[in-house]
Nucleic acid binder design. Sequence first.
DNA 1: TGGGTAGCTTACCTGAAAGTGGGTACCCTC
DNA 2: GAGGGTACCCACTTTCAGGTAAGCTACCCA
Lengths: 122, 122
Amino acid sequence: MVVSLAEIRRTSGEVFVEGCPTRVVLDHIMSKWGVLVLLALTDGTLRWGELRREVQGISEKMLASTLRTLEADGLVVRTSYPEVPPRVEYALTDLGRELMERMLPLVEWVAVHAEEIVPAGA
Amino acid sequence: MVVSLAEIRRTSGEVFVEGCPTRVVLDHIMSKWGVLVLLALTDGTLRWGELRREVQGISEKMLASTLRTLEADGLVVRTSYPEVPPRVEYALTDLGRELMERMLPLVEWVAVHAEEIVPAGA
DNA sequence: TGGGTAGCTTACCTGAAAGTGGGTACCCTC
DNA sequence: GAGGGTACCCACTTTCAGGTAAGCTACCCA
């Protein structure tokens, strides 16, 4: 599939206009923690504690707010089991999985080329 | 090409470790203005003024610093012609074009689904 | 009685990102 | 000689993403 910028413009109007939905969604999923949380969930369903450990360096506050944003966007589902101790599971929705199908090749490319891109040491 | 998270882990070590090159590069290219500048340059070579107009809402300061970051990463080339008035052109490098090949499908998908993702009004 | 666990929320605060407004240099046109 | 265009840079200010730390629920264990 060859995608051109012109095509994007045609389908979605203006990507370059401030405050358009495309920019908002991009801000959510391309945010520092958004990518990493989505990435972690690509593996499969994870619990709160597992996510914390998986996404190294994220604070509880940021994990909570990132998850809430992605849930509101319909990319992630939260399932809570009223047990003791409480158990809550997070997983990608169909939409989220569709998204990650497009995101993974990008992340993989970045992972492969990261060392040659980042000036040594920085 | 099916890419799994496990594969990414294998090729690049830990995406989830703080301060690793992959996270740094992701921060550059997935930043608010980084994506939009790269996107604008996908069309072809652009001059400073054209970029400003294309990427609606970017300030001169942010445009300058975004371009400097992307140039340092080897994703964008700056060519200046010592004319009067000065003329400077920005374009993607081969690396940048490779990157955008992976980024465009993602952005296109987001553009198509943005309206259904963002809760009406937000 | 007290500690432990899981999954959060709230309040507070800081530091980096981003916006604002000015300045520079050079030449051209009016 | 006033004003405008191009491509910036710098200092100042504001905003907000993000970090820190505490508290809370509700049960179990000892």
